[in-house]
């Protein structure tokens, strides 16, 4: 994946402290791995318990946004970046070569209205688009002062 794949609106202002990449088959039964990774990253970034739990749910919805709710042959690629004050996650669904482009629509959409409400409520910024024919979604959560440990 190129740097452009992971470049999302606003992330030029983040001065990355570290990052983690996760690649896994886009299958519903593996989504818990995404939540576990999000929790580990948020803990590592010294986010408080409430925000760790918020990120677990938000990342679940982000994954549903890009990979849908059914098992596919493609892969879900995630990049977690964190700074002193924020965590940013970018998720991309890569179709299997034999599968071809998965979505007819040009832009990934939240899985449903409830998913959109969850993301709106839990993260500071989020968005979705398409990069290189692959649905992509991203979110950014800034540290809340009350949760600094």
């Amino acid at each position: 994946m190129s740097d452009a794949t992971w470049a999302v609106p606003g992330n030029d202002v983040l001065h990355e402290r570290d990052h983690v990449e996760l690649s896994l088959p886009a299958r519903p039964e593996l989504l818990f791995l995404v939540r576990m990774t999000a929790a580990a990253v948020a803990s590592r970034a010294d986010f408080g318990y409430d925000q760790i739990e918020d990120l677990r749910l938000a990342i679940d919805e982000l994954a549903l946004t890009v990979s849908g709710d059914e098992a596919t042959a493609g892969r879900l690629q995630l990049l977690f970046k964190w700074t002193e004050d924020a965590i940013e996650v970018v998720g991309i669904y890569e179709p299997d070569e034999a599968e071809g482009p998965r979505r007819d629509l040009g832009v990934a959409q939240p899985a449903n209205e409830l998913s959109a409400r969850i993301l709106d409520a839990l993260v500071d910024e989020h968005g979705a688009d398409v990069v290189g024919g692959c649905p992509r979604a991203w979110l950014r959560m800034r540290r809340r002062k009350a949760s600094r440990q």
């Binding site: 677990r56 409830l114 969850i118």
Partner: peptide
């Protein structure tokens, strides 16, 4: 311990 939008959709 955890519910996401798909769980909520089932309940709705």
């Amino acid at each position: 311990s955890f519910v996401d939008s798909t769980a909520l959709g089932v309940l709705v």
